[in-house]
Computed example of a mutant assay.
Amino acid sequence: MKIHAMWDKYPDLKHNLEKTQALMEQSIRLPDKQIETAILDLIRSGGKLLRPAYLLLFSEFGKQQEMNKTIALASAVETLHTATLIHDDIIDEADTRRGVRTLQHKFSKDVAVYAGDYLFVVCFKLLAKYSSSLRSIQLNTNSMESVLLGEIGQMSDRYNLDLSLDRYIQNISGKTAELFAVSCFIGAYENGTTQQFANDCREIGKLIGISFQIVDDILDYSQKSEMIGKPVLEDIRQGVYSLPLILAVQKNQDAFLPLLMKKETITNSDIQQIHHLIIEHNGIEAARSVAADYTQKALKKIARLPNTANNTKETIYDVTESILNRTF
């Protein structure tokens, strides 16, 4: 079982992530073996497993850590994340995900919808079996709602040239940050920390998730111009405007208007021009500044976490600094 190389320097965590992925795979049992294999291929396709990693790390602050339960909860969170990816691919009409053909491309949109729905069921079966209280189940339900509201918000803002920073943050707070937040909360809460401490962990996760998404947006636009393509190309065609573009448009909407008004008919050449305009109007640098602000807020809160014998705080800090300052 191959786990992302970023975890090699944390052997204990890597071992638990291997257990997490193994339980996910064991929980996928479908009569249609082709579809089952397609789901398993996605699970095994090299995702970073960040959300279960944070759940596992924050569980170490608890006084009553039960590894079987914690592994199951980590599996539930990553299963939920995988379900949202499948549904994202349907909406985006994506052909590949992590180098693997998407379910909707390999089979059909109908099959992909049912596969994503099936993973929601797997998630809640794991939660129902291993959660010590209804609080985590309730929180996961609320998280699903937040993710969907973020997606709906993004959809309703398609081709919106007046999209504000606050509105963008609101959308990604649901779409991306919520699962980071719930991972940190459940890891702490389900292993015996106080409600207040778990809430503080949730806030850390939210900040990490917001910064993570902004960094993703920056990386999309930071490639050499000849490399610009998916997902930037398809996002712009679909009217999904991420932060570097939003901030550059705010500087000079008139420069972007003739290109963006083309909507679905926009060409690759138009995308190149938009890329140059974003650089010219410092959209990437402005987005980096916003990401740095959220990153520093997250790191400051992590630095205030209690010390533990196994240096959990230091590991969380190191992992967070690494993923939020990444260039890949």
Rank of each mutant, 00 (worst) to 15 (best):
A22N: 14
K33W: 09
I39Q: 01
G46M: 09
G47K: 04
L49E: 02
Y54Q: 10
K63N: 12
A76S: 07
V77Y: 05
E78A: 00
A83L: 10
T84R: 07
I91V: 15
R97G: 05
G99T: 07
K106W: 02
V113R: 10
Y130V: 14
S132P: 13
I137Q: 13
I137M: 12
L139Y: 09
N140K: 08
T141D: 10
Q154P: 03
Y159A: 06
L163Y: 06
S173T: 02
A177R: 01
A181S: 07
A181M: 04
V182T: 14
Q196F: 05
A198I: 00
E203K: 15
G209K: 05
S211N: 07
Q213E: 02
Q213V: 00
D217C: 00
M227L: 15
G229A: 15
L233D: 11
E234H: 07
I236L: 02
Q238C: 10
V240F: 14
L243H: 01
K251I: 15
N252F: 08
L257F: 11
L260A: 03
K263A: 08
Q273F: 09
H276R: 09
R288A: 00
R288T: 05
D293K: 13
T295M: 14
A298G: 01
K301E: 08
K301R: 14
N311T: 13
I316M: 01
